[in-house]
Simulated scan of single mutants.
Amino acid sequence: MASSKKKRVDEEEMEDDIDDDDVIDDDDDIESDSDDEQEAMDQEIQLDLEARTPDDSDFNGIRTLLQQVFLKAHINVSELADTIISQNYIGSVMKQPYSPEDDDDDDDDDDSDMTVLALTTVVNITERKNLDCVKQMKSMLSTKCNQCAKGQHEKFNKLLNDPDHHVGYLVSERFLNLPPTMAVPMFESLMKEMEKAKQKNMKYDFSHYLMVCKTFEMKAAHNVKQIMYSNSEEELFEEVADVCFKYSVAHERDSCVEKWSSEDGMEPFRNVIIFPADKLSVIVDKIKQEVGNT
């Protein structure tokens, strides 16, 4: 903007001194600059990613991804992160591999945590019912269900508190703008790991899975409300849900959500889904088809 304004001033002050060649050259420069900017915007950034089992160095990164879901809710996400790391035979984190070129003299020990880009795992909230984080999550979600979907409250509580039918909290979190293609291999790996665990008589034979999904609601034409999932593939899980309800987190919004809400008129929600465990592989196959991952 400043250079355009300066150009107009120069034209007014030196109108008699500018010949046709000068104008043509200047326009060519502007067009060239515009082409360069467009080319830079069209470039794709290639990320070299790797999936591996969670370990202690991933604690802060995992906690950050969990915090994206629960925001200011009174849930001990640190304990939940520790639990996920302790069962490192189940689930995986997606990270950007360490490169020596990235080293700086003032690097600290926590830099590795920031490379956690995605997390997929499952926590048995029936088996681990005595953990504070599990008690807090179940209590909070039960309250939200009673407030927002009273007709489903009894069924929701029955599913979550039946000791004979275990429920897994299915975590599939990644940073904004990472593609849904990442979800397919991570889900497939998770399903294989759970099968191996069940063969060893470990507690991963679930009747249902619980998901807490990040969504946004935006008013469209004629006051119709459109729901958008941050992780677009999660909408497929809602189609097979036994229980599904949503609650607003507008009063808990973080800086990213606040920007979206204020600029685009989006209100952030959390969609809670409980679906039968035998539907997981079916949905993963549908995700694979939709994202073209064969």
Rank of each mutant, 00 (worst) to 15 (best):
R8G: 08
R8S: 14
R8W: 10
M14H: 15
D21C: 05
E31C: 11
D33M: 15
S34K: 08
S34E: 11
D36H: 05
D36S: 09
E37P: 06
E44P: 07
E44D: 14
I45F: 08
A51L: 07
E79H: 00
A81H: 00
I84S: 04
N88F: 04
I90R: 09
G91P: 08
G91D: 05
Q96T: 09
D105S: 10
D108F: 02
D111A: 03
D111W: 01
A118S: 13
E127P: 05
D132V: 06
V134Q: 01
L141E: 00
K144D: 06
Q147A: 13
H153E: 13
F156E: 03
N157G: 09
N157F: 05
N161E: 11
N161M: 05
N161C: 09
D164M: 03
G168S: 01
R174P: 01
R174L: 03
L176W: 15
E195P: 04
E195G: 04
K200N: 14
Y204D: 06
M211P: 00
E217K: 13
K219W: 08
A220Y: 08
Q226Y: 02
E233G: 00
E235Y: 12
L236C: 04
F237V: 07
E238L: 14
S248A: 04
H251L: 07
D254K: 11
C256T: 13
W260N: 11
S261G: 15
M266H: 04
D285I: 06
K286R: 15
